[in-house]
Design a protein around this nucleic acid. Sequence first.
DNA 1: ATGTTC
Length: 473
Amino acid sequence: MDIVLTPETPHRFRIERRAPMRVPGVVFASEDLLPTGGAEALQQVVNVATLPGIVTASYAMPDVHWGYGFPIGGVAATDVAAGGVVSPGGVGFDISCGVRLLVTELAAEDLPPVRERLMDGLDRATPRGMRGGAVWRLTGPGQLEKLLAGGSPYAVSQGHGEERDLDRCEDGGAVSDADPGQVSARAKERGAGQVGSLGSGNHFLEVQRVAEVYDAPAAAAYGLRTGQVCVMIHCGSRGLGHQICTDHVRAMEADMARYGIEVPDRQLACAPVDSAQGRAYLGAMAAAANYGRANRQLLGDAARRVFAGVTGARLDLVYDISHNLAKVESHEVAGRRRRLCVHRKGATRALPPGHPDLPPDLRPHGQPVLIPGTMGTASYVLAGVAGGQAFFSTCHGAGRVLSRHAAVRTVPGKELRARLERQGVAVRASSWRGLAEETPEAYKDVAAVVETSEAAGLCRRVARLVPLGVVKG
DNA sequence: ATGTTC
């Protein structure tokens, strides 16, 4: 069917509800950022609007693009008490994929003499790509289970970080409702040897410079100053999260009829949150969330040791945030507090100023939101704002416009590296093809995405970060 | 994203 987008503001479009949709669709975008080329992503926004228990609207962020079942850049909340469902496709295969940002006292102007040594150190200290390997070799019996239950706090307790790190992690670095018993043996096997590894695709570790500050008080509270060197890590839950998604999609596909659920796309397999199948997925998903956070904790700690060794500089954590997760949260809908299962897939939670879940010193400024940019361009630090649109969510990145296959046809990896090096970005790539797949031409303009997110009232900009060196998965 | 096709 033709999908009609009705402009509500210059940065917000509406898809009217029509059967079998239960709620309208809302797309936050400028004319320029609207999905094109068959608009499969918009069809997915419509499909999500049919899910049992969905409330208010099926949302798309400005970086929306086609995904598995849900669009990437999709946000949807279901009412738990009204038979609301949870869908693994609404979280994605890379459960708890997210971003960690650390800052140093080092000024960018002092970096050149040590930059190559630093990049070589980070290259060696960051397991990634198809080679395998991991920072942390789990040895003791039950150690993986402890990590799945305990997330970053467990990693810190075993010597992989500082207590202060946990104050700067979403949920203190671990969600409490993990159920390692719902994680299959196969998922555990895949995850056991990957704790502290970057992976591949769009995952990266970047050394960056704070290029511009838009909101000085917030930046100061977050620990960011113009000219400062920082480190951004973008990675997820590796084979463990992928296997959990696969396992539970299969189980839900088989059980949906029993729950009386019909969906327009098999990839929207789901189960009521308040059901055995729904609880099983959420318990396993939470375990993967803790694995993803511990993974970033390990990689951040490895980078910390490299910086200490090469430059003597400390790395202090700014924040760690996931952009692929479902969470049961309390929100007001039509004047009533409701328990909602909020799916954010390629979308970031963005709590407003004053929110009690924020650390006291950050609370006046809103939650830090970390936006990994396209390689060689820029990344952003944003902050949550009042208003509560899309259940306090905003964008997560630039958003792909070319397939991986199309991307590699635009430029050979070696040429891309030369171009990046000419632009002043040191490159440590895992594979030439992997590098070419992430060429900036394959993505939307991240600056336009964050400007549109701000204009739409989803967040505000705090700082822009530009790359000095990239360790590519 | 992913032991890039159970």
